[in-house]
Nucleic acid binder design. Structure first.
Lengths: 350, 350
DNA sequence: TTGAAAGCGCTAACAG
DNA sequence: CTGTTAGCGCTTTCAA
């Protein structure tokens, strides 16, 4: 009694009064824990009078259930970890890319809609942060080849959700875009507009997507018997990518079309082209893989290949939640289509 | 025995084997829960031999402590909620703004460094998501005047961390930038470069920052006896802000300097100025409040006023963690300085 | 219709 | 130096 009355605080009574617990409400209302719990959760068969009394008392006392205790009972925390693998060097830079910004926010929204919250985690070195977190699963967006995170997670028996590279592994689910189809569609479009020397700019990355893009480009060029010209950007970010674009533009073979598969500000690419004496679209057809909304507002507007981060997120979370709640009844993965948004920058004016 | 042996799964044994618990390790190692717990946590005084045996057994069995049970014991979940209030209409758009992208990632990084994980929450309608989450505190970035979220959180006795508008409220902590000082510094700079008609473009928002900027601009203009010209953007986003910039540029009074206090792509502003016959910086000095890295890569590079999201995050998390762990010993709030990055767009060429 | 009691998995008093 | 025991706050059989 005295112990309870003296509070559960440590030394020197803390400024925060002890939280109201279920048992406090029960005592106050002259009911048992069970009854109050049932009343609040709408379960069990209680008389309306009792139910109302319990609810009223809880409200009056400002009772809020302890989420941790509920989780322990339920066996799940409804928490999903979220890591972007691509930026292992700068573990937090990813949010500055419109693609990942949209992917992240759409993922969080889709998860929350189904009652799961997203926890932001860093890529790269600090593996093991997740050890102290009650994560029901972890999403690894665009893992790079040398990142052990997927292995570690799988070894720890935490369900992993990532790209198609994990296909077939137990406990692993995936969602991916069809990089090859997207590249083919784009190059076909450029060819139809008259391009004969389409150059490709992409970052020097081991992401499944970038590897797939490069392979598809080479394949397409070979099949069409058209020359291939690839310039690798040393790193992500506007600076290095713009430099790579300039390299492509000033190379021995003056390209007549440019496909930029790296997050870069479209207006900056346009400006770079102008600086080097190209008129877009007359001298150069331009397509950027980008979710950047500035593409619509440039002069001319820039054609973009959208990877549909919102669709990826929605499809992915749906699959993940199904797997989590029904013991992977459905398929382990799903492919989401890309969208080529044709605008003036890749339309022949003739 | 039989009960334990038959597993704790529901109907039709699930594909996932039951997780290894502390008690399983203890039994296997022929020790007690306590001993294994102490061995794993490095607490207590155990013989090296026993400690090693416990650790080895745990490793061999793939034991991972149940984070939820630990949280329940500890009384804290080391989880911090994160909401951006400004985009109540589009609860997830904020990540697409470089400022919030950096603020968010820096906050997550700073929190994680101190052992706290960040949970992404949506602004606007869906209040109450946090009810089922064991949040130790919630960060509300840039709340808008009509958003009840801060009130709700405080009423639920969840520590809130936000901007200075909550100063003095118990349980509320804040970090803020000195909007007035920043505006004065910028306008002084423009005046020193010869500007006499500095126009201001900012979104029609009730954020403390935007309200403060407008007030400071008016005050400065009055004090300097210079004309004031303010154009409000109807909404956030590149489209509406560029339109507002164009309005400012084509207004009755042709401005000789422009201060854009809204997230907008700097190259787009530059292009808009050119479209309307301005040469930057000869006819128009330009300063954008922006964290967008494209500002460095334009022709000319654009002067930016950086709100220092990384510093805001770092200072904020430090304060918050101190408050959480020491019963708010330190101050309730802190002011972080802004940084004017002067580049060619606001430098008189004469 | 309501209540007592068990137990989720862990840590920390307190005995031995 | 090690083990037994009592909870953290909740939900849920099961018995009254």
């Amino acid at each position: 009694m005295t112990k309870a009355a003296s509070g559960r605080g440590g030394p020197s009574s803390p400024p925060t009064p002890p939280r109201v617990r279920l048992v406090d409400v029960a005592r106050e209302a002259g009911l048992s824990k069970t009854t109050v719990s049932a009343a609040l959760n709408g379960t069990g068969r209680l008389s309306p009078a009792v139910r109302e009394k319990a609810r009223e008392t809880a409200r009056r006392m400002g009772y809020r259930p302890n989420a941790t205790a509920r989780q322990l009972r339920a066996g799940r925390a409804r928490l999903i970890g979220y890591v972007v693998g691509e930026f292992a060097g700068a573990p937090w830079a990813f949010l500055e890319s419109p693609y990942f910004a949209q992917l992240t926010s759409a993922t969080a929204a889709a998860a929350l809609k189904r009652g799961y919250a997203l926890v932001l985690l860093p890529a790269g070195e600090l593996h093991g942060e997740w050890a102290d977190l009650p994560l029901d699963a972890v999403i690894v967006a665009d893992p790079v080849a040398d990142d052990r995170i997927v292995e570690d997670l799988l070894a720890a028996r935490i369900p992993v959700f990532t790209d198609r590279s994990v296909e077939g592994r137990p406990g692993a689910h995936w969602v991916d875009v069809d990089a090859a189809a997207a590249v083919r569609e784009t190059l076909d479009h450029l060819k139809a507009q008259g391009a004969r020397r389409s150059a490709l700019v992409l970052p020097d990355s081991t992401t499944r997507f970038h590897v797939g893009v490069l392979a598809a480009y080479r394949e397409w060029s070979a099949a069409q018997e058209l020359p291939e010209q690839v310039v690798l950007a040393a790193a992500a970010g506007n600076g290095p990518v713009v430099r790579a674009v300039e390299d492509a533009l000033t190379g021995a073979d003056r390209p007549d079309a440019l496909l930029v598969v790296a997050e870069v500000s479209p207006p900056l690419v346009l400006e770079a082209a102008r600086r080097h004496g190209y008129d877009v679209p007359d001298d150069l057809l331009l397509v950027c893989v980008s979710e950047d909304t500035t593409a619509v507002h440039t002069q001319p507007p820039v054609t973009t290949l959208s990877l549909g981060p919102r669709e990826v997120a929605e499809a992915g979370i749906e699959l993940l939640v199904a797997a989590l709640e029904e013991g992977h009844a459905g398929p382990a993965g799903v492919l989401v289509p890309t969208r080529l948004q044709v605008r003036a920058s890749s339309l022949r004016t003739s």
